[in-house]
Amino acid sequence: MTAAAAAAGVPFWRNLLAEVVDRIIAVSAPPDRLHLLLTAGAVVLAVAVPRVWRLLRHGITIVHEAGHGAAATLTGRRLAGIRLHSDTSGVTVSVGRRRGMGMIATVLAGYPAPSVAGVLMAWAVGAGHAAAALCGAVALLVLVLLQIRNWFGLWSVLVAGVAVGAATWLLDAGWRSVAATALAALLLLGGLRAAAELPASRARDRSRTSDADQLAALTHLPALIWVGVFVLLALAALAGAGLLLGLVPLP
């Protein structure tokens, strides 16, 4: 609490709330082209390094499972919980009809979720609302945390939440913009890599329980068609984010 607020008798919680709101609605200048390219280049390198990617992949899995959970809730299914595993896999359990559009939408939503989140974050950064984008990421992590049903998942979401929350609260406007840009790039590039890796993971896992295989069973379209859909959606999101940030010139 500031000295002026204390002197005026303003309660601590009210002053803190005002500071949080001010931080959320703070407007910062969008990053210039050079900073965007440097940040994106750093994320490309991080995603390309296997050991680093394995660590970052946990964050992509969190958003992936959040996509399943959001779709289940929006289509009237009952969300029963989310589990995250040390091998970067995850499971979202929902209760409802085993077939139909609700189930299809729930299964379909996982792989595109990081790309959609990345586009939204890129839009916010380009509009000068990097702080709001980071706060939105924290809010998403809190909602996921409420649905976690295992210890590793709890630990993963808490670490991610602390990291994004620290960037939101401790960094100045310029560095918040860099952090939000990096997170948007990670979601977009990580979402693309996760989708592109699906054929290899299907080849290793003969149980045929991937999202693409479940969609094949639900729709009678081949699993490889759904893999292609996931990759195309990720590429479209990457191109859209580039347009929003001015990296891709308009035709």
Rank of each mutant, 00 (worst) to 15 (best):
H64W: 13
V125H: 02
G136P: 10
A113I: 02
P31G: 14
G100K: 08
A80G: 01
S89E: 05
V142D: 04
A130Y: 03
L36A: 04
L134S: 03
A130P: 01
L74A: 14
T61Y: 04
R77P: 00
L158I: 14
V116D: 04
G110R: 07
V43K: 00
A132Y: 07
G165E: 00
L170C: 13
A40N: 00
A167K: 05
G69H: 06
T75Y: 12
S156C: 13
A124M: 15
V159H: 01
G67R: 08
S156W: 01
G67V: 05
T73L: 15
G100T: 09
V43W: 00
L34S: 06
P50G: 03
G161H: 10
A42V: 06
G41W: 05
P31E: 12
V63R: 09
R98L: 12
M101Q: 05
L154H: 04
H64G: 09
V119Y: 00
R83Q: 11
H129E: 09
L79V: 13
L146P: 00
G102L: 03
W53D: 13
G81M: 10
L79F: 05
G67M: 05
V125D: 03
I60K: 04
W155S: 08
N150L: 04
D87K: 07
V49H: 09
V52F: 10
M121C: 08
L84R: 08
S156T: 15
P31D: 12
I62Q: 02
L34D: 12
R98T: 11
L34P: 00
A113G: 06
W53H: 12
V164D: 10
L38F: 03
A109D: 04
V119W: 00
A117Q: 09
P31S: 15
G76C: 09
